[in-house]
Design a protein around this nucleic acid. Structure first.
Lengths: 234, 234
DNA sequence: TTAATGATGTGTAAAAAGTACACAAACTTA
DNA sequence: TAAGTTTGTGTACTTTTTACACATCATTAA
């Protein structure tokens, strides 16, 4: 056993003693509603963290790719399987889970809240405003923070946030989404200029309805410009 | 068991059936020598990948933090324990390891090759030019590629590459390092201007010796400007 | 109906950052 | 001492980013 430990890629992994770590996947699923960035959470009911929020996760199955596990969890919880999903970080402190040694790989995803209905009876599954969350079960608050930082890095260069919006949206909605994610105010004229220059938007020649002010033009995301890359950044 | 699977954070992890995945750490340790970016590799001698290069890795111990495992591997192989080390990605395809289900979390590190002596008899452990490597054992070539991409992203903004250089270095050495990492040619005047503006360098008022041309000034990295952040980007 | 309100839509000027580029000086080697 | 190699330096041009004001359109309240 010792020689396997020193030169990891030599030996057979037949000794059951090596399988004493469990592996899970946790998903940080972001949504956008009422001008706020939200995250999908459930009530935790293991005794150590009774009543605290936790992320959606599950153990990885022995016959399942790591990435597949994240898609499975997303699908099980939201019904969606065709969205942007990206691995962020793996958390592996010895005592992060009270039930035993569990290392978790985290993914984040962006979905349009209105695209489906939650089964709200499941463990109080619901969308919670990211900024209202100050603590969570396990190390999930750290995980959330890490994923939010990653999201902020990514939106600067990649057209991923369109997953958070309805198919048709106004420039104000788009800007308020960026402001919610980055937690800053942006200049309206420069914001518009930038997006038109990047050619990410298609003008639908339609207008907002039922807004208590002058209606803005509606746009859709220029999918053709990115092909599959709109979903996967890496 | 089923209910644990659906709501991961509910149950006890007492069922041994869950511990059927092994977890390892692989380290991509970059060095710089003779104007080339190099990576520390060993000969793989499991039968499926006989003679191919592989990265340095080991199984994570049940009582060891994930990050600690990466530091341990680096220390065991290079004797260094005070260097930049960053988690990059976790690879978890079902069949990535022929000996069984092994998920691996990868880290990269940058070390100064001249700082220590390798024990070269261990499995042909040696520094290999990154650009000469076209295939490796397991999925290690993909891992190497991913880590190299991450390194390229990081050097644009963070002063990490100084770990690859001796304490005193010339601007030419620094530039040739950036050129080796990014695999592009840079303009010498703009490169110098940029580094002086960033205030990352301290002029030592010393000059190169034993060079077959006009000696350049020597500098050291302005550590004080970054504190602990020079080691950890995140 | 009219006025107040609130969001839309638009362009320009200044500042900052990035890029391209050439020549004299210092040291080594032949 | 001449040829070769690398150092060290500044300026003009281009691109990107930032700051900023006013008329228009629809709704709501008077």
């Amino acid at each position: 056993m010792k020689h396997i430990s020193r030169f990891s890629h030599l030996g057979e992994l037949s000794d059951k003693d090596y399988f004493r770590i469990a592996l899970s996947v946790d998903c940080v699923i972001f949504g956008f509603e009422d001008g706020e960035l939200k995250v999908l959470v459930i009530k935790c009911n293991i005794k150590e963290y009774k009543g605290k929020w936790s992320l959606l996760g599950d153990l990885v199955r022995p016959d399942e790719d790591l990435d597949s596990a994240s898609y499975r969890i997303l699908k099980e919880r939201t019904g969606l399987d065709d969205v942007y999903l990206e691995q962020v970080h793996t958390f592996g402190k010895v005592n992060r889970h009270p039930a035993g040694r569990v290392i978790t790989t985290t993914y984040f995803s962006l979905v349009n809240i209105k695209d489906y209905q939650l089964k709200l009876n499941d463990n109080e599954l619901h969308w919670h405003p990211v900024n209202d969350i100050k603590e969570m079960a396990f190390d999930h608050f750290e995980i959330l923070t890490t994923c939010l930082e990653r999201l902020r890095e990514i939106v600067e260069d990649h057209p991923v946030v369109f997953n958070l919006l309805p198919r048709k949206f106004s420039l104000r909605e788009l800007q308020s989404l960026y402001e919610a994610i980055l937690n800053i105010k942006l200049d309206r004229r420069n914001f518009r200029k930038k997006f038109f220059m990047m050619d990410w938007l298609i003008d639908l020649n339609e207008y907002e309805e039922d807004v208590p002010h002058r209606p803005g033009k509606l746009y859709k995301f220029n999918q053709a410009k990115f092909g599959k890359k709109a979903k996967k950044v890496s």
